[in-house]
């Protein structure tokens, strides 16, 4: 396994540089000058690989190899407490996952979570960014309020929100009691509310990210557009409607896609706040994966679940690439 990096990254360090058809004219000139100073392009090729090598090693070892191992062990009854892969299982692990309620429930919960979080994260972040961009004073304050939670550890966030959602005596339930609800439902203890609680926490936690993306997108909109619109007598609202929203379209699609991928990978909030409960009502795929691997000791089955999630995420990411490619082509 330790030999994997050099094998996988391609030709050996000494290989000659040939076929430099893609080199630019400048490169060619530079290269020819090199010949005068140095032994030749072999030197540059060697340097290229040497510069790439450290990254290649960690990249292959800690990113590529785990992917390969994940696929391999998903076909075996690999046990956490045994060395080696264990007996061959064929597609049994996949069959198990694909027929298991918990797996589909976790995927479904991911969808529900996405549905709960995407609209507020997109709309609210957009509104906040547009407004904060227009209001010139107090920017630092809004960034502090909206962005800072995003850079805090999920564990700290979860402790704060678990406390707010404490059944009966927590801030949220107490507020409900004060407003006349005699026995307010415990948010994280009620199957129909638990995911909502996790979603609220997540919106609070991560809105800063989208807020900043939108702020960045807003800076790209040329001022002349607004000036022209203002000359035509367009009000602020009209300007937002006809200039800001359409021009932030790419940012919005990016934000939505990033959010979907983030939802698929959700683990922290659920692990820390509900542990997947009550019942399976907030279980997510990565929760299922880690439980299967580290609590049930079933690495093989957990790998199969990981592979399935991996495939879903890669498909979504590819869709995103495809969309970007298409919109780039259309723009050309």
């Amino acid at each position: 396994m330790s030999t994997a990096p050099t094998n996988a990254t391609g030709p050996s360090v000494d290989s000659r540089v040939e076929g430099r058809a893609d080199a630019t004219d400048l490169d060619r000139r530079r290269a020819s000058r090199d010949v005068a100073i140095r032994p030749g392009t072999k030197h540059e090729a060697r340097a290229g690989w040497m510069f790439l090598l450290p990254f290649a090693i960690v990249y292959v070892l800690f990113l590529i190899w785990p992917v390969i191992y994940m696929f391999i062990s998903s076909m075996f009854n690999t046990s956490l407490v045994e060395t080696g892969l264990g007996s061959f299982a064929g597609f049994d692990n996949y069959r198990e996952m694909l027929t298991k309620e918990e797996f589909w429930k976790s995927l479904w919960n991911t969808l529900v979570f996405t549905a709960f979080t995407v609209p507020p994260l997109v709309i609210l972040a957009f509104v906040l960014a547009v407004l904060a961009n227009r209001v010139r004073r107090g920017q630092w304050f809004f960034r502090l309020a909206f962005f800072v939670p995003f850079i805090l550890p999920s564990a700290a966030i979860a402790l704060i929100w678990n406390f707010i959602f404490t059944p009966g005596t927590g801030l949220w339930n107490s507020l409900q009691s004060a407003l006349g609800n005699e026995s307010p439902s415990p948010v994280l203890g009620t199957p129909s509310l638990a995911m909502l609680g996790v979603a609220v926490t997540t919106v609070w936690w991560t809105i800063g990210f989208n807020f900043v993306l939108y702020l960045a997108g807003l800076q790209d909109i040329p001022r002349e557009l607004y000036e022209a619109a203002a000359v035509d007598g367009a009000s602020q609202w009209q300007q937002i409607k006809s200039i800001t929203i359409p021009l932030l379209g790419p940012t919005t699609s990016l934000v939505i896609l990033l959010q979907i991928i983030a939802s698929l990978k959700i683990f922290d909030q659920v692990y820390l706040m509900t542990g997947g409960g009550p019942g399976l009502s907030t279980q997510v795929v990565l929760g299922l994966v880690t439980n299967t691997a580290f609590t049930d000791y079933r690495v093989g089955a957990a790998s199969a679940a990981s592979v399935l999630l991996f495939i879903v995420i890669v498909v979504v990411a590819l869709l995103r690439q495809a969309m970007e490619w298409f919109s780039a082509r259309r723009a050309d």
Binding site: W65, V67, M70, V314
Partner: peptide, 11 residues
């Protein structure tokens, strides 16, 4: 495209 956390088990 490789989602890091998904690799926790093989890692």
């Amino acid at each position: 495209m490789i989602p890091g956390n998904v690799l926790i088990v093989p890692l």
